[in-house]
Computed example of a mutant assay.
Amino acid sequence: MRLVWAFLFALASGVVFAASPEDDYIAARDKAISDIAAQESSNAEVEALDGANTKALADLEKRLSAILGPLAVKDFPATGTINLQSLSASDIGFGMLDGLRYAKSDAGPSIVATTRGLVERWLRSKADEDDEGLRLPAGIDEALKLDAFYTQAIGSDAAFVKTLDFSLKKPEGADIAVARLGGWTQDVGPIYDQQVVVAVVKGDRVLVAEAPASPPVPKIAACEALWTAADAAAQKFQQAYQNSDLKDQQAYDSANAAWEKGDGDYRACMGERLPGDPGFPALLAEAQQLADRMTGK
């Protein structure tokens, strides 16, 4: 009888302490990252590194597919590809959000799907970023309100910069729904290729969608004038810096300050004036419809 009880206890313990599919995924991902780092340290050939990266990403994609199951959002494919772009810390696209990306084309709308648990783990990993601008809070609700979340979660070689937040009606069944208008950039100044970005948390699922703004965001003369004036002032300081053989640090700093202020003033202007534009209701409707579809409405 003692052996029977010991066996039953062992079974029960195994159930309690068994690793979850998410645990297995994280362990496999971290091992792959470690293995690739070791190969890089030993000066492995580029072909070998690329092969190891591709093989590991394919394995992780299968694991995520098993965790998430098929996507059921109208106008999006049921199967996705891994959102991570690289497992090498030296590559662009390393450290993106663990999840699957669903899209019919590279240029069209896309959704990155993941779980609440994977997002929470990912956010914890971003809490100690050396760059203060890239640090993220542990709470999903707070993180979804920050440009830095989208920059790191679904972007690889550019920063997401918000133009404005949409006032969404939270879809039935959703725990969190956030929508914003913005664009991807590597510099200051107007971003004319704007995107509607919507994040929805429903139960254990977290979905982040991105779609080209339709209709395209119009240029607003008053906002354009703010940026044009700021850019002209910055260019004068930049020219002075160039004329000093790159020694006039004050001119250099003044140029950057003028660009930064102009960028901020331009975005504030767009955020204030765009809701009064005739095309704005269609942009809001695009965001709302996307959120509704993401929750199965």
Rank of each mutant, 00 (worst) to 15 (best):
P278I: 02
A291V: 03
R116V: 03
T114K: 06
Q85H: 08
D231E: 12
V119Y: 02
P212G: 05
K31W: 15
I140P: 00
R2Y: 03
D131I: 09
P218G: 06
Q250C: 08
S214E: 14
A211F: 00
Y150F: 11
I82A: 06
G93H: 01
A285T: 11
I111S: 03
S65A: 13
L3A: 14
R2T: 13
E224I: 00
E210A: 12
V46C: 15
G183N: 00
V201S: 03
G99R: 03
R180S: 09
F149C: 04
L3S: 15
D30P: 08
A285K: 11
V112I: 08
V46M: 14
N83Y: 02
R180Y: 04
T295N: 10
A285G: 06
V178H: 03
A78K: 13
E61D: 11
V196R: 00
M1A: 11
A233S: 13
D292H: 13
D141L: 07
A225N: 11
P281G: 04
D75K: 14
T228K: 15
E132V: 11
P218I: 00
Y102C: 13
A138G: 15
F9R: 06
R124V: 14
R2N: 10
L164M: 15
I140R: 01
R205M: 11
V15Q: 12
I191L: 10
P137H: 02
V73Y: 00
A37Y: 07
A28E: 12
A103Q: 13
G80M: 04
D231K: 09
V196Y: 00
A56C: 04
A287T: 01
L246D: 15
